[in-house]
Amino acid sequence: MSLLDHYDALLFDLDGTVYRGEEVIDAAPAAVAATHRAGVTVRFVTNNASRGPDEVARHLTALGIPARPDEVSTSAQAAAQVLAEKVTGTVLIVGSASLEHEVRQVGLHPTRTADDDVVAVVQGLSKDTGWRDLAEACVALNTGVLWVACNVDPTLPTERGQLPGAGSFVAALRTATGREPIVAGKPAAPLMVEAVRAANADHALAIGDRLDSDIDGAIAAGLDSLLVMSGVTTAAQLLAADTRPTYLAADVAAVTEPRERLAVGEQADWSVEDGTVRHRGDGEPDPFTLLRALAATPPGGRFEAADDAARTALAHLGLGDGLA
Rank of each mutant, 00 (worst) to 15 (best):
M1T: 09
L3E: 04
L4G: 10
D5C: 01
D8M: 06
A9M: 09
A9Q: 10
A9N: 11
L11S: 02
L11I: 03
F12T: 01
D13I: 02
L14I: 10
Y19P: 02
V24R: 03
I25S: 03
A27T: 00
P29D: 01
A30T: 05
H36W: 12
G39N: 06
T41A: 14
V42C: 14
V42R: 10
R43P: 05
R43W: 07
N47L: 04
A49L: 06
S50D: 11
S50Q: 11
R51I: 00
R51N: 01
P53W: 03
D54Q: 11
E55C: 00
R58T: 01
H59K: 15
L60R: 05
L63T: 01
G64A: 02
G64R: 03
E71G: 02
Q77D: 02
A80H: 12
S96F: 08
S96H: 04
A97Q: 13
L99S: 05
L99D: 04
V103T: 03
R104V: 00
R104D: 06
Q105E: 15
H109I: 10
V118A: 07
V119H: 10
V121R: 12
V121C: 02
V122L: 09
L125P: 02
G130H: 13
W131D: 13
A135T: 13
A135S: 14
C138Q: 15
A140Y: 08
L141Q: 08
N142R: 15
N142A: 00
T143A: 13
G144S: 08
V145S: 10
W147D: 09
C150Y: 04
C150N: 06
V152F: 02
V152Y: 00
D153R: 12
P154D: 04
P157M: 02
E159S: 14
R160N: 12
G161W: 04
P164F: 01
A166F: 00
S168W: 06
F169I: 12
A171Q: 12
A171R: 14
A172E: 08
A172T: 14
T177C: 09
T177K: 08
E180M: 06
P181Q: 10
V183H: 02
A184G: 05
A189T: 07
A189F: 00
L191N: 06
L191Q: 15
E194R: 15
R197Q: 14
R197T: 14
A199W: 09
A199N: 08
D202K: 13
H203D: 11
H203E: 06
A206P: 09
D212E: 13
D214K: 09
G222S: 03
M229C: 07
S230M: 04
T233R: 04
A236T: 11
Q237V: 01
L238D: 13
L239D: 11
T246W: 02
Y247I: 00
D251F: 03
V255K: 09
T256W: 01
R261V: 00
R261L: 07
L262W: 05
V264K: 06
W270C: 07
E273W: 01
G275W: 13
T276F: 05
R278E: 09
P285E: 10
D286Q: 14
L290V: 05
R292I: 02
R292C: 06
A293Q: 11
A296K: 02
G301F: 12
F303M: 10
E304L: 13
E304F: 11
D307M: 12
A310L: 11
A315M: 07
H316S: 14
L319E: 11
G320V: 04
G322D: 09
L323V: 14
